[in-house]
Amino acid sequence: MKSFVALFTLVASAAAQDYFSVMVLRSASPIHYSTLTARGGKFYLGGAGPSSYCPPEVGDACPSGNNTVFAGGDETLSLAVVVPGGQQVYIAPDGTMAYTAPHSAYMPYGSIVDGWSKTKGENYYYLNFKDGLVGCPPTVQNQGYQVFGKIAGFNSTGCLGFSSLALNTTGVGAWEY
């Protein structure tokens, strides 16, 4: 019973936050209307769905894990998860848009965690990274376009810039990604 009460408290406190999923806009491209998906510690546009996990003891109280949901967007960005400690989104030194493993705050030295913002458009909010994001063509079939932050030294030749439309959601996306 204590575990259920603790889980309920975590989910209830998380529900009070601002959660959103991201759809990308890039007209006349293969990534137009794709969703930003957390998979294997990195982010992709298109390809398979998110990689999520829920401990068996949580049972039916677990979020579906079918969509990638974010929290924040005011300088920092996180995945909207229930797992204790959360999961931080960052740009790795090689430009990869990535996220921390569950129960860990580890990021490679030189990773960038700040520079995120949400700005109001005409009818929606947009998620921004300070110098922009790009989707680079897949190197593995059905992987989807991998997302990178435009940082100093990153070669974005062949990659597509895009706008990130932040779509409000009602709760966390998964126990963990």
Rank of each mutant, 00 (worst) to 15 (best):
Leu77Glu: 06
Thr9Phe: 12
Gly153Leu: 13
Thr9Ser: 14
Ser52Trp: 10
Gly86Leu: 06
Leu36Ala: 00
Gly144Trp: 00
Val83Thr: 12
Val172Pro: 09
Leu10Phe: 11
Pro84Val: 08
Ala174Lys: 00
Glu176Thr: 10
Ser117Cys: 06
Val89Ser: 02
Tyr53Gln: 11
Asp131Asn: 09
Val140Leu: 15
Gly95Gln: 05
Leu25Tyr: 02
Ala71Trp: 06
His32Tyr: 07
Ser104Arg: 12
Val58Asp: 01
Tyr106Trp: 15
Gly95Leu: 03
Pro84Cys: 01
Leu165Gly: 05
Tyr124Trp: 11
Asn128Glu: 06
Ser27Gln: 11
Glu176Met: 15
Gly144Gln: 00
Gly110Cys: 03
Leu36His: 00
Tyr177Cys: 05
Ile91Pro: 03
Asn128Leu: 11
Val58Asn: 01
Leu45Gln: 00
Val134Asp: 00
Ile31Phe: 09
Tyr126Met: 13
Thr169Leu: 13
Thr76Asn: 08
Pro138His: 04
Lys118Asn: 05
Tyr90Val: 07
Val5Gly: 02
Ala101Trp: 15
Phe4Val: 12
Val172Ile: 13
Ala48Thr: 05
Gly144Lys: 00
Pro56Cys: 02
Gln143Pro: 09
Asp94Arg: 02
Gly149Gln: 05
Phe162Val: 14
Gly85Gln: 10
Ser163Ala: 14
Phe4Gln: 15
Gly41Val: 03
Gly149Leu: 02
Gly49Glu: 02
Pro56Tyr: 09
Ala12Arg: 14
Thr119Leu: 07
Ser52His: 09
Ser3Pro: 14
Ser34Glu: 09
Ser52Gly: 03
